[in-house]
Simulated assay, not measured.
Amino acid sequence: MQAFTTKSFSSLIRARLTEFFPRQHYVTRKRFYRNTGIVQSDSKWEVTLDHRRLKTPNGRVLSVSSEPLARAVAAEWDAQVEHITQPTMHLTALCNTAIDNPGKLTSHDIASYLLDFLPTDTLLFHSQEEEELRALQAEKWTPVLEWFQKRFNVTQETSKDLALPPVATETRAVLARYFLSFDFTALNAINFGVEALKSPILMIACVERHLEPKEAVLLCRLEEEYQLSRWGRVPWAHELNQAELTARVAAALLVVAGAGESHAARAKSTPPETA
């Protein structure tokens, strides 16, 4: 086994944690280790705390499929200062969930959930009451919807009222194949990002590198930002929420990228055509 350190990356993570979560208070425990690192074991990478393997809540060794992802998880642990604030450690949580799988889910379970989520996608519901907001949504959301339809060669309606818009069988089939082209770890991370954004479309746009996490968060918060521009905002609370959402989406994308090296070798340049 060959050991590695993560000091340079962790200093950046620590600075960001201090910036993003200055007022958050969680149940924490004291930091019990001095150094973090990573080791390679066969084709996997493991995180170490004082040369001891980091384990999941179920006692399994936390191992990932790529060195960059292992470095990022180790940096997340090294970024903890006096206390360990686990609710902010999204990378560790995502890896733990994928390894322990407490819900005993399969990739098909997650893909089915994401397909059922699509009709409730934030981008499919434009305001029916405020003309100014509706115009803003059309300006900001329509280009993303058009990209999505072109990317997957599908047509997706938006809601005309409070009713869920229909999703064609062909669209479900194309997206099912797309989701199932990812391994379980990556698909679990995609689901995490979808739930943060309330939008499979925005998360897919991030995975496909059409949008940056910060852009996706602003789009999913478009109505809230519109209301804040009219009624004002709490000096720090809304920025904190935006930063937290961005951190969640960025963590999910990092896991997708790290877990997706095997996926990249077989990824499609274009989505498969429907039968």
Rank of each mutant, 00 (worst) to 15 (best):
residue 203 M to Y: 02
residue 180 L to I: 07
residue 215 E to H: 02
residue 197 L to V: 03
residue 202 L to W: 08
residue 205 A to F: 01
residue 215 E to G: 01
residue 190 I to E: 00
residue 199 S to A: 08
residue 179 F to D: 05
residue 210 H to F: 12
residue 180 L to Q: 11
residue 210 H to Q: 15
residue 190 I to M: 12
residue 212 E to Y: 09
residue 187 L to C: 10
residue 180 L to A: 10
residue 179 F to A: 06
residue 182 F to Q: 01
residue 185 T to G: 10
residue 193 G to M: 09
residue 195 E to I: 14
residue 186 A to K: 07
residue 185 T to E: 10
residue 204 I to V: 15
residue 180 L to W: 03
residue 213 P to D: 09
residue 213 P to H: 06
residue 191 N to H: 15
residue 216 A to Y: 09
residue 201 I to F: 02
residue 216 A to Q: 05
residue 208 E to G: 11
residue 207 V to H: 10
residue 202 L to P: 03
residue 178 Y to F: 15
residue 177 R to F: 01
residue 199 S to P: 10
residue 184 F to I: 01
residue 203 M to S: 03
residue 183 D to M: 14
residue 214 K to C: 07
residue 215 E to L: 00
residue 197 L to P: 01
residue 214 K to M: 11
residue 192 F to W: 15
residue 211 L to H: 10
residue 195 E to F: 07
residue 178 Y to L: 07
residue 191 N to Y: 15
residue 182 F to G: 00
residue 185 T to V: 12
residue 195 E to L: 07
residue 209 R to S: 11
residue 189 A to V: 06
residue 207 V to R: 05
residue 205 A to Y: 01
residue 187 L to Y: 15
residue 204 I to C: 13
residue 205 A to G: 04
residue 178 Y to C: 10
residue 199 S to F: 07
residue 212 E to F: 11
residue 197 L to H: 00
residue 204 I to W: 08
residue 190 I to F: 12
residue 210 H to L: 04
residue 176 A to L: 08
residue 206 C to E: 08
residue 191 N to R: 12
residue 189 A to K: 01
residue 193 G to V: 05
residue 187 L to R: 10
residue 179 F to M: 14
residue 181 S to Q: 04
residue 207 V to E: 08
residue 205 A to L: 08
residue 175 L to N: 15
residue 204 I to E: 13
residue 197 L to Y: 08
residue 185 T to Y: 02
residue 199 S to Q: 11
residue 212 E to A: 15
residue 185 T to A: 11
residue 193 G to F: 05
residue 208 E to V: 06
residue 180 L to S: 05
residue 215 E to Q: 15
residue 204 I to M: 12
residue 182 F to Y: 14
residue 194 V to R: 01
residue 185 T to N: 09
